[in-house]
């Protein structure tokens, strides 16, 4: 089956709601950092933009725009202790099993079987999308996030957009 053309669908969807066309970033090249040790020695962290939060804190705004909120998620959080608030995708499956979009249990298993070296004490949920103020993202929010990854001595970041 042919993949969905999200560019066309989003343009149509938001156009019908009166939004101006989104200015997509189109990059011709991409940076690349090679890891300098085996994966089995790497510290691997996790980030999703799927609007997931710990059930004890206020949920994300499901209709958020320009929301730069970024939550720390304790790596010991039970897979039952999440809430998902995001109107922009169907999270029925992820409500049932958080690993569909935020594979905390699977990542821990890869530590146990030695595929990866370790996980940090915290994972991440945020950058929910529909962020139009890209300058703030690039100059403030992302650098602050990078500082946190460095504090945790992260070698590899797994990211799941939703």
């Amino acid at each position: 089956m042919k993949p969905i053309s999200y560019v066309d669908e989003l343009t149509r969807h938001y156009g019908s709601m009166g939004f101006p066309p989104y200015k997509w970033t189109i990059n011709e090249t991409a940076p690349l950092t090679r890891i300098t040790k085996p994966l089995a020695e790497c510290c691997v962290s996790l980030l999703t933009s799927g609007g997931i939060s710990h059930c004890t804190v206020p949920g994300f705004d499901p209709d958020a725009r320009n929301d730069h909120r970024l939550d720390e998620i304790d790596q010991n959080t039970s897979n039952q202790d999440f809430a998902i608030n995001d109107s922009y995708y169907n999270h029925t499956d992820a409500d049932q099993d958080i690993n569909c979009v935020f594979p905390i249990d699977r990542l821990k298993e890869l530590v146990e079987d030695g595929t990866i070296g370790s996980i940090p004490n915290r994972f991440w949920s945020g950058f929910m999308g529909r962020i139009y103020n890209r300058t703030k993202l690039i100059e403030e929010s992302i650098p602050a996030f990078i500082d946190k990854l460095r504090e945790d001595a992260v070698d590899v970041l797994v990211t799941a957009p939703a």
Binding site: P3, I4, S5, Y6, V7, W24, T25, I26, N27, A30, P31, L32, T33, R34, I35, L47, S49, F127, G129, R134, L137, I138, I142, P143, F145, I146, L149, R150, V154, D155, V156, L157, V158, T159, A160, P161, A162
Partner: peptide, 27 residues
């Protein structure tokens, strides 16, 4: 999120992106 990956990578941390939007990812 793609932008986040690019910036994190430029800062020297490797990233891997699990995508469900092919055209968005290519862009």
């Amino acid at each position: 999120m793609g932008l986040v990956c690019r910036s994190v990578e430029e800062a020297g941390i490797a990233t891997t992106y699990i995508a469900t939007g092919r055209d968005l990812t290519i862009q």
